[in-house]
Structures are given as C-alpha cells and as structure tokens.
Design a binder for these strands. Structure first.
Length: 149
RNA sequence: GCGGAGGGCCGGAUGGCCGCGGCGGCCUUCGGGGCGUCGAGGAAAGUCCGGACUCCAUGAAGCAACGGUGCCGGGUAACGCCCGGGCGGGGCAACCCGACGGAAAGCGCCACAGAAAUGAAACCGCCAUGCUCCGGCAUGGUAAGGAUGAAACGGUGGGGUAAGAGCCCACCGCGCCGCUGGUAACAGGGGCGGCAUGGCAAGCCCUACCGGGAGCAAUGCCAAAUAGGACCCCCGCGCGGGCCGGUCCCCGCAAGGGGAAACCGCCGCUAGGCUUGCUUCAGCCAAGAGGGGUCGGGUUGGCAGCACGAGGCGCAGCGCGAGCUGCGUCCCAGAUGAAUGGUCAUCGACGGGGGCAACCCCUGAACAAAAUCCGGCUUACAGGCCCUCCGCGCUA
RNA sequence: GGCCCCGUGGCUCAACUGGAUAGAGCAGCCCCCUCCUAAGGGGCAGGUUACUGGUUCGAAUCCAGUCGGGGUCA
C-alpha cells in the first residue's frame, strides 16, 4: 500500500541492530560461577539432560537451602573428545557459548553442565553451538510432557 | 638450470568487540570495581637416560649380589648425550650409517639336511696293489673335486705327487716380536712362525667403568576432627662412635673453633628415675604424672616447596669443534574441574576445481598444549626462509 | 603428575629354555545319533602372535622404539 512512505527511517533502525547482535545489554555483565566439585557434577548428571549434535546439556535446580542464588555452570570434556588440544578448545567454546546464552535463557537457582562431544564441539560453526544451546535450554525448561510408556 | 648433501631459523599476519589467570599499586558500600603489566612449545609429548632438590636407609671406603654402559681422546654438574679422531660399510661425490671390548678363561647351543657342526671322521669320488664270473669287489693312501647346509678345518697361483695335501714357494689373510709416526684408538713398514684360531656374548659368562632406595601426589608447616589414641623405655659419674644438621654451654667482633647432652652400637648385674597402692619389706606386681621413642585407620581445606636459573641476549678472548672464560644487559607463565582464549573483518601458505595463459572460484593453516626445574635422546609435524657444499649440463 | 604391569582365533588361556604345521577348552558351521531338542561322537573353518625396525641361518620368544589397555600413589 501507499501509506508508508514517510516512515522509512523507522524501518531502517529496526533492521540494523540484529546484524550487530552482541549489544552490551547494560550492566548485566554476569560472570557465571563455575562448578568445581565432583559432587556437584554428579548431582547434575542425575537430573535432566538434553543432547544435541554439538553438546549434551544437564540441568539441575539447586535445593532451596543452598542459599546462593544465581546461575552456575560447569564444563566437562573427557578423553573421548580427543587429545588435550581438542579438549581445551571444546571447553573454551562451550564457555563462550554459555556466557552468551545462559544469562538470558537460564533460570535463577539452577546448575548447568555442558558436555563436549567428539569432533563437533571444537569444529562446528559458532552459530550452531549457540543455536544448540538455546534449543537445549528451552527444551529442558519446557513443561514436562506426559512420559510416553 | 636440474638433481642431491649438511647446518640454522620460523612455523599464520593486522585490526575491532567481548572474555580468562598471575603480579603491582589505586578505589571500595569489603561483595568487588577499574588501571598497568606479563601470560604455552620446538617438540610443552613419550617418560627412555642423566642431574638439581627432598625424604628414607646407611655411615664416608671396600666387598658381594643385581642392573647399566662398552673403539680412542676431549667437553660437561652428569649422562647411554655432544665434539674431534680411528676402524668397518654405503655413495661418482658432498656426505651418511655402525649395541664398534673379549669366542686360544670356561659352560652352552648350532634344528632339518649332511660322512662330519669342531678335534674325530669319509657318502660319491681320485690313486695304488690284489682278485675277478669283466658288472665290479677287497685292502691301503688321499681330502683336490662333487653332494648337504646359513656356515665345512685358511684363499689365489705355481711347483710337487701314483693321486693328493702348507708337503714346498710367492702374494693375501692370521698369530708373535721389534722399529717409525701418533697422548691414544690405530696406521705404515720389517723379521719370524707355518695353519694351530667356524659362528652365536641383543645365551650364560669374563673384563673395564658407573650406580644405596624412592620420588614434588617427595617433603615440611597451619587449621578442623576422631581424641585425654595404642605400645615400649627411664640403671651405670661404664666403654666406643658422634659433632654434617637441630638444642645447650664456653672462646671469638665475626666467619668459625671446642665441649656436653641427645642419638647409635657394645658391655655389666643389683634389672632400674618420681608418686601411690599391694606385699613375704631383699624384691616382685599394679596404677598414675612427667620426659623420650616407635606405630597407627579414615576425611577436608590452606601455605611453603614454586620459579633468579648449570637462565636468556649481546660483545670480546681461547679452542678445529663440543665448549670454556670475562664484561655488559634483561627478568621472562605459574594454573589446580586446571588461565594463556572466543568471534568478526581484511590479507593469506599448502591443497582441490576451471582456464592455452594472465587469472578466477572453493576450502582456510601441520604436529601438539606447561603442571617442581634443568641437560639430552626418541617420536610427531602442512609448509616457508637463510647459509655452506657436491655431481651433471649449458654459457663465458 | 610420578611409578608398575600386560597385549596370542569371537572369548578364556598354553607354547616364552630361539628350531619351522602356533596348541587346548568354550562359541560358530556341516554330518551322525534322537520322534524333536539338549548332551554325546566325527569333521571343518577361523591367527599380519598389537605395530615398526634390529640381532640370528632362523623370532610368538631376545633387543630397541611406537600404539593401545589396566593397576597403584596425596
């Protein structure tokens, strides 16, 4: 229709931000606490999990008496991922992905454990990693369906 | 220009945004914030050698056992490493490779085949003599030839002989003894001997040299906790060892020196110091406090060890070289579910595809990440750069 | 991070003192037995002795180096 000519500047401003996408978002800047105790990893592994092509995500809501609120995150890359270089690289990329996604999508008071997989975690495009983590977190927090027998 | 040999170095670049670990000082509402600075390798790897350091055992050493190394000389803190040389092998050459002591100290093994696998012999042969039914047979000599084997009792040539044989000779090889050169391994040359000495030592062994054992998850300290842990000892102005380290005393300004106790070993008999109880009042037994020693289950944090070192770089001198010495200069990772990065843009080596070509498109850096530190070795590694040298071809 | 040990058919083990076709049981396939199955009997196939070099006439064995697996120590 012809009703929109004078409003061209608005559409222009609407299209430019997504290209930059990593806006500072103000003072949010949360450095996520890192899980370090083996017991915490074992507890998370017994809770919910969701696998994707590039990673496995485990999530666990901490019990209320565990006072510290906020999101915590841990990373696991076992020897199955590859040699030391591949393990370190996979762990770093998981850390960057968690830093980008979890402050927005993660739930307060939960622990997340990201597990690297062979070949894919270290080599896949970074956008795929972000997409997989978004999908896994949303799936983990989706209302539980009735389990199929 | 093509092909090859040796040595050294590098192993993605620049920028934007967002992060991580250590250190320093600043601010702080003690939660932290922001600033500056530093932050993976040539192999950080394998853990195959050698050390530093720590604990344990022992006292300096020597011997035995076990393990390792193995031409000679040098370098080094040390080495199984490196450098130089010798010998053997490969290559036209530059150069490369070598577990390279001893097999007449001894033991053992050498399957099958073969007469025989190391001290004894002869299957087919060859030769002589005798016999003959002319096919051969018997006795003796011989070990050159054949046959077996991975390997067969020196090799080649000549003389010699019935046939042969180091039986004799020459050369080579081997052994012994001098000479010359060299620090030496060894090399050269001389004389003598006259075949005696098969192979395997990554089989045992002999010989020379080296090595006490374990390892930073060593070790020490702090905090919490089982918890008031368990057991043993306490004699002698005895004798000897022992002052490296800790304690005490003396001397000295100090470095240091001396002594004592501790500690270790031995000896002796009355069999053990203090308090209490029992008692047959010599003594024995039991309990307790103190001191000393030994041993011990399980759990979690923190600190030290832990980063100034056989250190890097530059210059000079000595040395063929490995390297050594001196001077100057620099401070250069320190984590512990473990930092040293993620992503984007531009450029980009190798590779793949297209094109006669210029060039275009796609992909987008190898191996591999400290964990107490250092010297080596070995193994992995896309590719690039520099220097020196050798062979062939062309031109001058 | 350090130290120690082990690699033989699909599985569990022999042969490890060098000597030639690497052997046994279970599992697999075929046949016999049985009405059928199991058990039993006979036969067959299945191995780069983890890999790569070296020593030796000859290597599963001896030596060196790679790779993989396991155990142990605060």
């Amino acid at each position: 229709m012809t009703t929109i000519p004078p409003e061209a500047p608005e559409t222009n401003t609407g299209t430019t931000p997504p290209a930059v996408s990593s806006c500072p978002k103000g003072a949010k800047r949360s450095t996520l606490p890192i899980l370090r105790k083996r017991a915490e990893f074992l507890a998370a592994s017994r809770a919910r999990r969701q696998a994707t092509a590039t990673m496995v995500v485990q999530a666990r809501r901490r019990p209320p008496e565990d006072a510290a609120s906020g999101i915590r995150v841990g990373f696991t890359c076992s020897k199955k991922v590859g040699n030391a270089v591949a393990r370190n690289r996979a762990k770093r990329r998981l850390r960057e992905a968690a830093r980008a996604i979890l402050p927005e999508l993660g739930h307060d008071g939960w622990d997340y454990v990201l597990i690297g997989r062979r070949d894919t975690t270290a080599a896949a495009p970074f956008e795929t990693l972000l997409g997989d983590l978004r999908y896994a977190v949303s799936k983990l927090h989706a209302p539980r369906k009735k389990p199929q027998p």
